[in-house]
Design a protein around this nucleic acid. Sequence first.
DNA 1: CCCCTTTTTTTAAGCGGTTTCAAAAAAATG
DNA 2: CATTTTTTTGAAACCGCTTAAAAAAAGGGG
Lengths: 321, 321
Amino acid sequence: MTNIREIARLAGVSTATVSRVINDHPYVNAEKRRKVLEIIRQLDYVPNSSATSLKKGMTRIVGVVSASYTTSSTPFIQAFNIIAQQHGFNVMLFLTDNDCEKERIALEMLRSKQLDALVCLHRANEWPIIESYAKYGPIVTWQRLVSEHIPSVFMDQYQGYMLSLEHLYARGYRRILNVYSSRGLNTPQRIRAYDDFAKKYTLDDIGFPDLHHMMSIADGEHIARWWIEQSQKPEAIACSNDDVAAGLLTEFKRVGVSIPGDVAIIGFDNNDLARLLDLTTVHYPSDKQAENAFAILLDRLGQKAPPLHALEFELIERRST
Amino acid sequence: MTNIREIARLAGVSTATVSRVINDHPYVNAEKRRKVLEIIRQLDYVPNSSATSLKKGMTRIVGVVSASYTTSSTPFIQAFNIIAQQHGFNVMLFLTDNDCEKERIALEMLRSKQLDALVCLHRANEWPIIESYAKYGPIVTWQRLVSEHIPSVFMDQYQGYMLSLEHLYARGYRRILNVYSSRGLNTPQRIRAYDDFAKKYTLDDIGFPDLHHMMSIADGEHIARWWIEQSQKPEAIACSNDDVAAGLLTEFKRVGVSIPGDVAIIGFDNNDLARLLDLTTVHYPSDKQAENAFAILLDRLGQKAPPLHALEFELIERRST
DNA sequence: CCCCTTTTTTTAAGCGGTTTCAAAAAAATG
DNA sequence: CATTTTTTTGAAACCGCTTAAAAAAAGGGG
């Protein structure tokens, strides 16, 4: 086995010097440094990461716990990967399918120091269980959680949804259909936003059904077909996310319904699809949330962390409203 | 820090004894074992995994490299997780989005012994690059690869697709539409299968278009709408996978086309959707492939491995043909 | 009771790195 | 040239665990 001792022997120096070269420490003679690097290259040597982790007390691996790899979680995970990479951390992804056991694996790896920290996009176990692991290493969540041990990069969607509704109002739409998803705590906030909105402008309750659990393109297509059959049609549809909006838009175009002439559509998230289809939407800064999550973890690990971003929703006006 | 020395001290034994208790070795006095376990429980102690890995020369983590988390890769990944778990291995998932750099991370972790082994469902880097990492630890692939260093659990889909076609023929269908995906090397084999099939039964070339890159439910829906517009309609549609078949089926039902009365549909994979929708399909044993992949890795790691499954396609007759 | 075998326990040597500390060498200063 | 400061190096102590080997204790037969 080729280890640091072997390199030291061949380069005619001590292991300390080799270690210094590897870790880019100062105070190494230029010639010796060259020689050591040469031997390392020749022998195709890499330090054993278990040994490094043991000695340094860190693995430089951060776990990301997500129920699955969906349109909504992907941007967060991608951004998290990038920022972690930039700081020399690797990311270990745990797709739990909402299975407590699978989630537990990640938590246990934090406990046994295989992971330095954890970010939970979703969770399967009860909060107290997750909190009980916070003593083993920093944990950050994406969902709302009031806990002194576990910080969160959660954003209250009330404000974001209100942005969406106000935009529709400003454009002159009054008969608005709300399309909700079922993502944990977001829906209640959106409902509250609509109630406040309706009260503010004294809008009558038109009796449109509240659509729930709408999350996919296919759901959007269904709603489009439903819309066509109605005699009392909504003038605008405020969607739970861009996928639903995309499904609506493409299905409407397919059957010749004009957007925004016949009906306006507004999405939520501002994902690739929304950009592609020219959908008006509300930008949900999940990339900034991911960077904040990482910064918080880094800080709790006692490392110098970049400053936190301010998290704000932003209305992206395009051609669908 | 609570380490094994601390436990040993409190239990009044040596670290060797504690280690034996932890690893369930024989030759430990029952009373001392009890005492040690008691202290471990009290202090909420877990062995440091870096130390264990360093000493044992294994991390018991296996990497799974996949482009993303899709309907086709999920069953494999799930099955792989389960079998790995059963053998005391953890799985580290790498979703590469076909990015060479991201894939490289996994390979480098194998090199630095952070991973014991790797299974590649997809790959972004060229084969020679991947092969060059085989010397650092066992690698198995899901795709075809002829290499002495990298074994594969690849299955030639010629036979599976032929099964599908023969079934349609036996049911009396002659005007068959082929729907292909673009998954690497599978499509050529399927085309070859259809050519041989057409030759065997001297079927005329009817001039249906060859549909390529069809992989999703939405693709299936498109094809259904295309079918409706044709004057010369296919009697049966042989799909690249169950998702496409599902899209076809549901879209057809929506507009009142009778299945299999007006047109027969056969899928491929036998996933949850196919079961749910009562689709005739060809079972693609990706769970068995995953178990084989793990067995091969285990064997190459010098551990006792379970025997390999024979891999066979199987026609699953349901109500869509 | 002695000798031999079997069971139990401890000591100590690693696994492969990093880092402290002290010493040696080189450079700067007066 | 002696003294001080700075740069460069290596020896050795760890990080936390496992395990081979040695030692101690217990059991068994004659």
